[in-house]
């Protein structure tokens, strides 16, 4: 990787495009999520603002922009402001190694997945900082839960990705896509169905989405770690939550579902179609299942996902060695 002016410009342009993608994604997903919630509960969802409520999400974000940034008493001032920024900016970096298309990669690094896994940990740090600095018991409890949940779910997630890495022999995401074919039976999901299942469960846990949304469980902790945030601070957390969802979907698509390869015509559209299908699935999960208890959440992870992922990794290693 050269650090010339052109590659720097490429990265800056990519970052700007990623910011655009994040905002557009949040707007679309908020609308989609509320509509899905409505239809699943047999009601129309947002309907009044714009034709069929289409500009509801934009109006909500305008309202957030105009809101007062309220700072509660006794907060740790510096960390309180640092936390939302820290939640938002690492996500920009995480999108860089994702191969959206054959030539549509912002920064093709050989250790792409390592970069993603390393920097996604910063999101958890921002959760701790937010919960601790806001000097609120709900915030602190939410932060504590976020940490233990993230530590727990990152391990099977990495293990399941490692099984695919064993097969392709590379940490480069573009390389992993190249190893897969265009048709669904040539994708890694057919070789590694168990790893795909483990990844799917742990991506829900990793992004703090229902039924694993313990860090921000509304009925127990009001809003968890971002209880004390209003206005843009809250908006940044919100944005990064949806961006994280999109990111884990892209990683899932890259590793298991053939990336930008698809039937008939390869191209970046397949990446987006497949990623948004996974996003739809996550939303569907949220409006179907009730929230699990915290001990159940950790039991699922430590008693089932972790042994299963170790078993899967072990079998993969043996098969790769023998063949």
């Amino acid at each position: 990787m050269d650090l010339s002016i052109t590659s720097l410009a490429q990265i800056i342009i990519a970052c700007l495009m990623v910011i655009g993608l994040m905002v557009a994604n949040a707007v679309v997903m908020v609308y989609f999520e509320r509509k899905t919630a409505g239809f699943i509960q047999r009601r129309p969802g947002p309907y009044e603002v714009g034709p069929r409520g289409t500009i509801q999400a934009i109006c909500d974000s305008m309202k957030l922009l105009g809101k007062q940034l309220f700072i509660p008493g006794n907060v740790d001032w510096l960390l309180y402001f640092l936390a939302p920024v820290l939640a938002f900016f690492p996500v920009l970096l995480l999108f860089l190694p994702i191969p959206f298309g054959k030539f549509l990669t912002a920064m093709s690094v050989d250790e792409g997945i390592l970069l993603i896994l390393a920097f996604s940990g910063l999101g958890v740090i921002s959760n701790i900082l937010a919960g601790w600095s806001s000097n609120n018991k709900y915030g602190l409890l939410g932060a504590a839960r976020a940490v233990s949940q993230s530590i727990a779910y990152e391990i099977p997630m990495i293990m399941s990705l490692l099984a695919v890495i064993f097969l392709s022999g590379s940490l480069n995401l573009s390389q992993i896509v190249e190893e897969q074919g265009s048709w669904p039976w040539q994708w890694n999901i057919c070789v590694q169905p168990l790893a795909f299942f483990i990844y799917l469960v742990s991506l829900v846990g990793e992004t703090n989405r229902a039924p694993f949304d313990l860090p921000e469980a509304e009925s127990e902790l009001t809003a968890g770690f971002h209880t004390e945030y209003s206005g843009m601070g809250f908006a940044l957390f919100f944005l990064s939550e949806y961006a994280n969802m999109l990111l884990v979907s892209f990683v899932c698509v890259t590793f298991f579902l053939g990336g930008w390869k698809g039937p008939f015509l390869d191209g970046f559209w397949w990446t987006f179609i497949k990623a948004y299908l996974i996003m739809m699935f996550i939303v569907w999960l949220r409006w179907t299942f009730p929230r699990v208890r915290f001990d159940q959440l950790l039991n699922i992870n430590w008693k089932w996902l972790l042994p299963l992922s170790i078993l899967n990794l072990w079998i993969t290693a043996i098969v790769v060695k023998l063949l």
Partner: peptide, 21 residues
């Protein structure tokens, strides 16, 4: 049972709404 639950909400998603404007 998770799949059963998903199929129920999936069916509800496509069935007509019960509320009125």
């Amino acid at each position: 049972s998770l799949i059963v639950g998903l199929s129920i909400t999936g069916r509800f998603f496509f069935s007509p709404v019960k509320t009125v404007h």
